[in-house]
Write a protein that binds this DNA or RNA. Structure first.
Lengths: 215, 215, 215, 215
DNA sequence: GATGAATGAGGGTTCATTCAT
DNA sequence: GATGAATGAACCCTCATTCAT
């Protein structure tokens, strides 16, 4: 008999924080792989090495869990965006960096795209009740506003570009290509996800956005 | 055949073609509303005023039905694309028309977007086994190639624009905005689907694409 | 345009007798492979290259079809039994021949065994309503009676052997071995259906029966 | 633990062992009555006063449940066989006892016969994947071997009788008669299951087997 | 005789969730 | 905090059968 009276079985027991996090991670994987409708509570619990009951204990319901996953995903991308340090770059370089960041984030986080598609399929009914998501507006729009302003002042960019519209274009360039990777690859008859194809697309994106602000 | 009465109970009986079509239409609605995983076979049957068994009689399985819906949707947009008559327009007008068409099609057919998202969530496993989808490549790429060529010859456009990449950008501009309408509206704190917002976006799209080919 | 106005498609159409027979043969295969409960009307129709409706046209129902199959199977074995010509053999040889015939028939017609098992699972409810089956009593019992009598008269066999009981033993020797071939092979850990194993069993059967009538 | 009341609704709740056993018992009844194909999961659940879901919780699938039933049935007969105490009996009495036991077991447990028929109809595909069934070989063969040896040593039985073949004959004598009780009764035109008929058959069996080992 | 289309009931199975401990 | 056992509704699919032609 040691001081431990309880035998744990692999997963960290009696560590609520880690348990919660493991469930959240498992849920992210499941929801992004199968969508909200196709996700299975059992699989989430199994993947998290947690009791199914715990899932309800921590999150209340499948829908609430989905929202929690969404919020965590938004928080993560916002955090990454905030880490961008563009002020010291010249406007063109800053804009390029922003385009690259967006592309690379979507490329590295296909779960995020999948999650957004699920949420929009359900008419945004989860984010609608989330104050947190509402507050997690992207800092990129404001960053863009600053870059555009600096660029215009220096005569590099044309005036009158709407940073919100441009932000949507920046995201859209990557989003459509990456989210629809399978159908597009099938229709074009070639793999859009090869290294070469991705590099080509990244170049195209940069050019598209820079051309959009050209004088 | 005279006008003999028919004892039907709502749906047109003994009209296989129409019954099949009704099922397909109901399935399109259901799949685009709830995704593949969330779609319910019972609801499709009910909406089609058909016996649930008929659905399997005609299509074999839920997955096969989903593929049939996808194929029909692709066929429809391809048909609409083919109806575009751009050769007689000057290159700039032709390009604008093409951008407008794409935007308007996505706007008018949100089911198509939803369907594509579902299919890509499932890694394109349905289109992968469809020869028909493979053959239904968009004529827009070739149209674009022609427009770009004419524009370059006349000195209106720069040379070297890849029509496939540009096609993806044209689609992407509208796709991201419309597909993510709910989350974006929530995050921006304003309705992106008002008449005014849509008009603004349409203008932005046209300009983006025209700027991309500018010399 | 030839004299034929109707195009047939493989199966002999407009030949009711053959169609009926093909259905019966397909049903025999299906029922013996899957049992009454596991048999599928669709598979029978497909195997018979017949329209499913025809099956009902000819036989009325799945149960009636099962009975028809049973009756045909009984008729066939009775016919084979009747073809046995044992009168001119000496009693021992006649008895051996009868044992061999029974063993070989069961070995060659596993469907018959399967059918009987199905029918007995259902408490004989099909044969109960069949006058034909009632009338198709085996001639073997009478043959046996004759053989036993001749053998006893010649002092070869003991008196008082009940031909009905002996008939059941003759059948039982083979039936249990062959009907339970899979479970027995599994439990004994060896294949009971090899040529050698079958020969050994056949020898054993003959000896068992001859020993049973020994003085 | 005091005598606190429990709110159950008929079946003993929260007693996994008993619930599992009740399901197994209900499944045995259903499978032996209707065969594997004809058995209904709903009926099993109803008979077990259990939720249909529990059946899958405990056994995984209908097929797995069928195997569990088979294994339990084999275990039961093996246990009964093992309880036979034949060593102290003289060889002839021991052999008679063994024949009687087999006959009486089959007579008392028609479900076992029905189960075996079902399993063999399906080509033994369940027992094939069961290690447990493989290990549950009958002790009767070894018992028989001992009896035959003792009998031969005392000059009561002939030498060279194969205990495995004889075991199959012992079982076969009863199996065919009892398993085919309905068809045989119909064909013979008399009830084979009356007390008198059964006694006659039991006598016949004993004699058959004893004659088979006679010198 | 023969056919494709249609049907309602029910098949086995799985769902998200909650109970009792 | 944590767990195995339990639940009813609903899932996709298939059944034997019949309709209209």
């Amino acid at each position: 008999m040691t001081g431990r009276t309880r035998t744990t079985k692999g997963a960290a027991r009696r560590d609520p924080v880690k348990n919660r996090e493991r469930i959240l991670g498992a849920a992210l994987a499941e929801f992004s792989r199968h969508g909200l409708g196709g996700a299975r509570v059992d699989r989430i619990a199994a993947r998290a090495r947690a009791n199914k009951r715990m899932l309800y204990y921590y999150f209340g319901s499948k829908d609430d869990l989905f929202l929690a996953v969404l919020e965590a995903s938004y928080a993560q991308i916002r955090s990454a965006e905030r880490a961008l340090d563009l002020e010291h770059l010249d406007p063109r370089a800053a804009l390029e960096r922003l385009v690259e960041f967006t592309w690379e984030y979507l490329l590295a986080h296909p779960e995020f795209t999948a999650l957004l598609n699920s949420e929009n399929l359900h008419k945004g009914r989860h984010v609608a009740r989330s104050r947190r998501v509402r507050e997690l507006h992207s800092p990129l729009v404001e960053m863009l506003r600053g870059i555009l302003k600096r660029g215009a002042q220096r005569g590099l960019f044309r005036r009158g570009v709407d940073p919100a519209q441009l932000y949507i274009s920046i995201a859209g360039e990557g989003y459509f290509y990456l989210s629809n990777r399978y159908t597009l690859s099938r229709i074009f008859g070639r793999d859009l996800m090869t290294k070469a194809a991705l590099a080509t697309r990244a170049r195209h994106n940069r050019r598209m956005i820079l051309d959009a602000v050209r004088r």
